[in-house]
Design a protein around this nucleic acid. Structure first.
Lengths: 196, 196
DNA sequence: AGACTGACGTACCTTCAGTACGTGAAGGAC
DNA sequence: GTCCTTCACGTACTGAAGGTACGTCAGTCT
C-alpha cells in the first residue's frame, strides 16, 4: 500500500512543477515566464518537465485544471449549504465573485486561459467544473417554475460572462463600494429573471 | 498639400503592416504568427516593422485600435438612428452581438486582446471606444429615471461582460436558434432594469 | 547642388520552446 | 544476490522567434 517509491517521487516532481508554474503564471503571466524559470523554481530540469507534460501549453492546462477545481469546490461549498434552489444560485454567484477576485486565480483562469488554450477548449473546461453548476441550478429553477421558461444555454453564457468581467474589474478597482455594489447589481439582474 | 511622397510611402507601409497582421492575427492567433510571416505578407522587412512599431505587442495594439474603432462605429450607427434613449441601448446591444460574432473581429478583440496587452490596458482601450457608449447610454437612462437609480460602473461591466461572452459563444455555436434566443435573453435582462 | 534626414533593408544576437539521447536508480525474475 | 528491464530524469543540442545595430539610398530642405 506504500505505492512504491518510484510513484511517490514521480507525483512529487509533478506537483512541484504544477505548483511553481502556477505561482509564476499567476504573477507574471503565461507569456512572460520561461520554462527555465519554472524548472529552476521546481528544482528539476526540462527533461523532467517534458517527461510529465507534452508542451508548455499542456503544463498550463494542468495548472488551469487545478485552479478550476478549487474555484468550483469553493463555490459548491457555499451553494450546497443552502436548501432553497434559488438561494443556491444567489450564494453561488456571490461566492464566484469573491473567489475569482483573487488575482492569482484571475490571470490564469480568466485572462490567459482563453488565449493559451483557445476559447473553445477553455469553455469546455469551464463546462465540466463551475460552469456546470451554474447551468444545473438555472435548469432546476426553470423546471421549478421560479425562472421564466426559456433555454438554459443563452442565459448561462450571459450570466457567466457578466460575472467573469465583473470579477476582473473588481480585482483592479480601488473604490471600496464596488464589491458590494456589483453583487447587488448582479442579484438585481438575477431577481429580474423570476416570474412575477 | 500633396503631403509629400515620403509621408505617403510611410503611411502605405504602415497600413500594409496593420492590414496583413490583422488578417494573420485573426486567423491563426497572435501567438501562432511570426513576424517573418507578417513582414513577408506585407512585402517589407523587419526593419520597416520596427521602424513603425516598438514591438510585436505594439503592432497588435495598433490592430486592436482599428478593430475597436470599427466596432464602435458600427454600433454607433445603429444606435444613433434611434431617437429614444432606451431604444438606443437595446439596438446598440443587439448591434454589438451581431458585429462581435464575426470571428475575425473576435479573436483579436475578445480573446487575444486581454492576454497580450493585459486586462487593464485592454479595458482602458474599451472605455475609450464602444465601452464609453454603453456607459453613456446607461447614465442617461438613469438620469432620465428609466432605469433604477444606481451606480453606472458595476452595471456597465456586468452587461459588457455578458455581451462579450455571449458573442464568443455565438460565434462557435451551430444551433440556429442561439442568436435570437441570446438577444431575447439579453433584452429581457435589460428590460428588468427599468423601473416599474 | 550639397547636406541632411528619415524610411527601410541586412546581418546578427539572444532567448526560448522543444528534441535526442544518455544515465542511474527502482523493481521484478531466478 | 545477480541480472535485466523499466522509467524518471539530466544533459546537450537545435530551430525559430523576437529584438537590435548598423548600413543605405531616396526624398527633402536650404
Amino acid at each position: 500500500m506504500t505505492q512504491g517509491i518510484r510513484a511517490q517521487q514521480r507525483e512529487q516532481t509533478r506537483q512541484a512543477l504544477v505548483r511553481e508554474s502556477r505561482r509564476l503564471f499567476s504573477t507574471v503571466g503565461y507569456g512572460s515566464v520561461g520554462l527555465s524559470e519554472i524548472v529552476h523554481a521546481a528544482g528539476v530540469t526540462k527533461g523532467a518537465l517534458y517527461h510529465h507534460f507534452s508542451s508548455k501549453a499542456d503544463l498550463f492546462r494542468a495548472v488551469l485544471e487545478q485552479v478550476q477545481q478549487e474555484v468550483a469546490e469553493r463555490i459548491a461549498e457555499t451553494a450546497d449549504a443552502r436548501e432553497d434552489t434559488w438561494e443556491q444560485l444567489v450564494s453561488g454567484c456571490r461566492a464566484f465573485l469573491t473567489v475569482s477576485t483573487d488575482p492569482t486565480i484571475q490571470r490564469i483562469m480568466l485572462v490567459d486561459g482563453p488565449a493559451v488554450l483557445g476559447w473553445s477548449e477553455w469553455r469546455a473546461m469551464n463546462e465540466t467544473t463551475s460552469g456546470r453548476h451554474l447551468a444545473q441550478v438555472l435548469g432546476d429553477l426553470i423546471d421549478e417554475g421560479v425562472i421564466a421558461a426559456q433555454r438554459v444555454e443563452p442565459l448561462t453564457h450571459l450570466l457567466s460572462g457578466a460575472m467573469n468581467e465583473a470579477a476582473l474589474w473588481l480585482a483592479t478597482s480601488t473604490d471600496p463600494r464596488n464589491p458590494d455594489d456589483t453583487q447587488d447589481a448582479l442579484v438585481a439582474m438575477l431577481e429580474s429573471l423570476r416570474v412575477a
